[in-house]
Amino acid sequence: MTYQVEVRNLSVSYDGENVLSTINFNVDGGKLIGIIGPNGAGKSTLMKAILELIHRDHGEVLVDGKPMKDVRKKVAYVPQRAAIDWDFPITVLKTVLLGTYPQVGIFRRPGKSEKRWALECLQKVGMDQFANRQIGELSGGQQQRVFLARALAQKANIFFLDEPFVGIDVTSEALIIGILKELRDGGDSVFVVHHDLSKVEDYFDELLLLNKELIAFGPVARVMQSEYLRTAYHSQYGVWDALGVVR
């Protein structure tokens, strides 16, 4: 059978040093998946390697049985907030409109229907009243919501979010996770790089525990076991244990 996302023998290295080795997993649609692991575990790297944003040494990624380059329009990516130039001369609405570019294609400009759609996506994240603001004038949580709106504007089936909850307010976090759950309920796959283990039970269906290799993958309760976490986190394990996160 074909899965919505199939990752086979994925390996990545920088300067001859392995960052990720032989990652294998399959994901069916309708799952909200947390990618967790200690700092430097290769969480963002895994996401970028799946999306072919960086060079991979081995392995392939299939989406609905097809290679990534044929299905790019089905995939939406939200980069880390730190990767964005917030002084760029662009408004909130224009930023969301970028999400329609893959569909609009080369040589064409987004028209009225695209603008209406972008505004609808902004409404969904509760940011429509900020449509004409410059993106740097927003708070961290608002910025993250705008970039989620851009991903929604892409009309994708598979979503990748890199650390969306870092440095944002509680309201925005709740709103974002609500939308991600809606997407999941609609049959989409949602991957989220995340580093705070305390909320994983509430947020995700499945976890991908990573430390340069795949330590465990499956339902949250099964992955959050002491032996897996000890393997992934080594010395940091005690902290999470003390916080009462481990089963």
Partner: peptide
């Protein structure tokens, strides 16, 4: 003028630009 869209997106958010090819 012809590639305004592409120049804009690859300047503002090159990773996003690469993610859709």
């Amino acid at each position: 003028i012809l590639f305004y869209k592409e120049l804009l997106v690859s300047t503002f958010d090159p990773t996003f630009a690469a993610s859709y090819g």
